[in-house]
């Protein structure tokens, strides 16, 4: 083995090990991630967002949703409350009063590397595409376990419809297949939203942090949170001040249900054998006891 083959083997082994821990096909059902494909995502720089809500308007246009009123007057009223995404708004922008003044934060599906919604879905209607998009399909049966499981409360259900659907941001998967960036990114006037591969976005985020000392806190939200997400945030203030949950941990969510799932084959295999064994032993013991009793009786009768 010469040096080149050694390096090749070691390199692929290391890559395999790291990629394997990043995404296990069995856990997420995503296939082909080991090829040249990478997850795509959006980097949101909250220091650049000016709260114009053009992304919301673009999102509505792209997804055929009701057009929001984004005039100056409407915005003033809108920013008074903290809004959540809804069945007719896949992305919303909220205003937070922080230690460094007002900060606008666009909010939408985080497109987790290993999504809880996908792992919880009974028919994999919510799918993590190999390009990183988390999409919904109409084969869904409406059990809403995705809504229970999503730590960001992103999947929204149209309760008022007899054949309800799940509504959420799909990172403009349809546009992506045509080679166009998502509607919100295209509409953003300040480049607060940036679309690209996750790797490139992380590089860019780290570059901005390094080149602008004091402007950002030294962390990209979504790099490690719950195993990494495709929507990532840069911020000047701690993330809990701009409404992002910092108590979710670094473990990806499907792993929590893995404890139960991995016990299933053992229970399925072992309990029937154990039970038949117990039943057999007890039956034998009873038989022995009966025979002994019988013998005892016979002996008595003899005397």
């Amino acid at each position: 083995m010469n040096r080149r083959t050694f390096l090749k083997v070691m390199g692929s082994a290391v890559a395999g090990a790291t990629c394997g821990s990043l995404i296990r096909p069995a856990a997420s059902g995503a296939q082909g991630v080991f090829d040249a494909n990478e997850f795509f995502g959006i980097l949101i720089d909250t220091t650049r967002c000016i709260g114009c809500r053009l992304c919301e308007k673009a999102c509505a246009e792209v997804n055929y949703l009701p057009n929001p009123d984004i005039s100056e007057k409407a915005n003033q009223a809108v920013f008074k409350t903290k809004r959540d995404t809804s069945v007719i708004e896949y992305t919303v922008t909220n205003l937070y009063e922080t230690e460094k003044g007002k900060v606008f934060v666009p909010w939408r599906c985080m497109h987790c590397n290993q999504p809880a919604c996908h792992s919880a879905c009974i028919v994999y209607a919510l799918e993590k595409r190999e390009t990183g998009h988390v999409t919904w399909d109409k084969r869904c049966i409406g059990c809403r376990l995705c809504m229970m499981s999503c730590p960001f409360q992103i999947p929204k259900h149209t309760f008022q419809e007899p054949a309800a659907v799940i509504q959420k941001c799909n990172l403009c998967y349809g546009r992506f297949l045509q080679g166009i960036v998502p509607g919100c990114v295209e509409a953003c006037p300040t480049e607060a939203l940036m679309f690209g591969t996750r790797r490139k976005l992380l590089e860019e985020g780290k570059r901005r942090i390094a080149q602008n000392p004091g402007r950002y806190i030294n962390h990209i939200y979504g790099e490690f949170e719950i195993g990494g997400t495709s929507t990532m945030y840069l911020s000047a203030v701690p993330f809990d001040q701009i409404g992002l949950r910092t108590d979710l941990g670094l473990k990806h969510y499907p792993e929590y249900s893995m404890v139960y799932l991995s016990a299933i084959p053992f229970i399925a295999g072992l309990t029937p054998i154990a039970m038949l064994g117990i039943a057999h032993v007890i039956r034998m013991a009873k038989k022995d006891a009966k025979e002994e009793h019988h013998d005892h009786h016979e002996e008595k009768e003899k005397h």
């Binding site: 069995a26 856990a27 997420s28 059902g29 792992s119 919880a120 879905c121 009974i122 028919v123 994999y124 209607a125 084969r139 869904c140 049966i141 409406g142 059990c143 809403r144 376990l145 259900h157 149209t158 309760f159 054949a163 309800a164 659907v165 499907p254 249900s257 139960y260 799932l261």
Partner: peptide
């Protein structure tokens, strides 16, 4: 929510095997 499709997990319109 989509009760008219309740048979999907049984007929194999994708088996969500990682779903509890």
């Amino acid at each position: 929510g989509r009760w008219h499709l309740f048979y999907n997990p049984f007929i194999g319109n994708k088996y969500g095997v990682s779903s509890v």
